[in-house]
Design a protein around this nucleic acid. Structure first.
Length: 347
DNA sequence: TACATTTGACCCAG
DNA sequence: CTGGGTCAAATGTA
């Protein structure tokens, strides 16, 4: 526990340091012939830093002994003297589950072939479990169309859970009302950095547009057990995390989301703070570990509906901003037009 | 060999 | 007691 507290303290310090660093940058840009946009971006970032820091403090003020990320940061079941199972109660148990940010996406699959491939969302997921859904209208091993579509719930967690402490989880299951609809339940935002480079996307992601899939996005954010639905229709898609199908057939040629979408999603998933102001060879700046975690922490301390809304739209506001050359974002090959082409199918 | 997936078992909340 | 969520050993894959 102490480790978690120390870690949180370090996180807070790092966040404040980041804000300080950004303020310095802003100071430099006040004198230089930099664009107004650049300054605005820096200001936004600074404000975000303070918001995140305050959020962390607020979390503490709530009196929850468990930081939202503490459980994952402690390598699971650290105490080798105790039974791992018996150790579980005091860790990521239900308390944390209740406080973790959750939202649901519904993906409509139009044809049988639609499910023949993973919907990449820019993050790598690792499946860690699968359960049959009891009382389901489409139980396991029942044929739906020509596909064997079990109605089971698949559990995924971020591949970088252990390496980067990323707490993102998702569950995917076929909708009971419509077998062509997949419900993807997300828990927690990604705090990890995707490993691929958007300018040279992974081969599996190239030229793979969502040609025949229609995605109905009905997102529901949940905090605790409250059903605090938030209208997110107007939100920029860049803040979302696209789900991937768990249901078999990992044919790489059937990747529905195109490069631009991946790029956009990636941009929405990381803090711009992570992008070096002086990138040259690489488009990305590998942040200190603390920065990675900092960012993640901010996504899990929302306490109100408005906060949740902000959580989703926050990356939007950042990535929507015209990126000044001073920050060297221009080589990130972000094509807004392409993006919205891709998004037409979500309408 | 490293990493991902499968799957039965386990734990906990309701 | 039951179902949901997770673990972890076994297995598969590149």
């Amino acid at each position: 526990m102490k480790r978690a507290v120390d870690w949180e303290q370090n996180t807070l310090i790092s966040e404040l340091n980041l804000g300080k660093e950004l303020a310095k940058q802003l100071q430099n840009h006040l004198n230089a012939a930099s664009s107004l946009e650049t300054r605005e971006i820096l200001i936004d970032e600074i404000l975000s830093c303070y918001d995140r820091s305050l959020s962390m403090l607020n979390w503490d003020a709530l009196g929850d002994n468990h930081t939202p990320y503490a459980s994952s940061m402690e390598p699971q079941y650290l105490d080798v003297n105790n039974s791992p199972r018996s150790n579980r109660t005091c860790k990521g148990g239900s308390k944390k589950r209740k406080t973790q940010q959750r939202w649901t996406e519904r993906l409509k699959v139009c044809s049988e072939s639609d499910v023949e491939g993973p919907l990449e969302d820019g993050h790598s997921w690792r499946k860690y479990g699968q359960k049959d859904i009891l009382g389901s209208r489409y139980p396991r091993h029942i044929m739906v169309s020509d596909l064997e579509c079990y109605n089971c719930r698949a559990y995924y967690r971020c591949t970088h859970r252990h390496t980067q402490g990323c707490l993102a989880n998702k569950q995917v299951q076929r909708s009971d009302e419509d077998p062509n609809v997949f419900e993807v339940n997300y828990k927690g935002r990604h705090t990890c950095l995707p490993v691929f480079n958007p300018t040279t996307p992974s081969p599996s992601l190239v030229n793979k547009r969502p040609k025949h899939i229609k995605v109905n996005r009905q997102e529901h954010l949940q905090q605790s057990e409250e059903v605090s639905e938030v209208k997110t229709d107007d939100l920029d898609i860049r803040g979302y995390i696209f789900p991937s199908f768990p249901f078999e057939n990992k044919d790489e040629d059937n990747n529905f989301f195109g490069e631009s979408l991946m790029t956009s999603n990636f941009l929405g998933s990381i803090s711009p703070s992570f992008v070096s102001p002086a990138t040259s060879d690489s488009d990305y700046y590998s942040p200190p570990r603390s920065h990675v975690h900092n960012f993640g922490a901010t996504r899990k301390v929302q306490t109100s509906e408005s906060d949740l809304t902000e959580t989703i739209s926050a990356p939007t506001s950042v990535t929507n901003s015209p990126i000044g050359e001073d920050l060297n974002f221009s080589n990130m090959c972000f094509d807004a037009d392409l993006l919205f082409d891709d998004l037409e199918c979500f309408a």
